[in-house]
Amino acid sequence: MSNSLFIVGMVALTFIPRYIPFLLAGKIALPQWAKRALHYVPIAVLTAIVSQASLIQQGAVQFDIANHHLLAASVSFLVALTTRHMFLTISIGLVVFALARWLL
C-alpha cells in the first residue's frame, strides 16, 4: 500500500462515519426512542471525555488534591451548577488550575 493510498484510506474511514447520518438526515424517519436517545449524546460523550481527561493522569487514575486537572474541573463544575455562566465557568476553572500549579 503506497503512502497516498494509505492517506486516501484514512480520509475515507474518518469521513464515512461522520457523513452517513448527515446523508440520511431527512430521508429516513427515526423511531421515537432513537430521537430521544440522541438527546443524551452530548451529555454522555462530553462527560466521558471530561471524566477521563481530568481523572486519568500519566496513564493512571489520580483521585487526590495533587491532581490539578481534577481540582479545576470540580471547581468549574460547582461554578457552572450555581451560575450556569459559560465564560465565568471557564475563567474560574483556568484561574484555579493556574493557581494550583503555582501554589500547590
Binding site: P42, V50, A53, H68, H69, R84, M86, T89, I90
Partner: peptide, 19 residues
C-alpha cells in the same frame, strides 16, 4: 503545560446546563 484544562472546563461549562 496543561493547556488541555481549557477543554475540560469548557466541556464542563457546556454539559452542566444540559443537566
Amino acid at each position: 503545560w496543561g493547556l488541555d484544562i481549557a477543554l475540560i472546563v469548557a466541556f464542563v461549562a457546556i454539559v452542566v446546563p444540559a443537566l
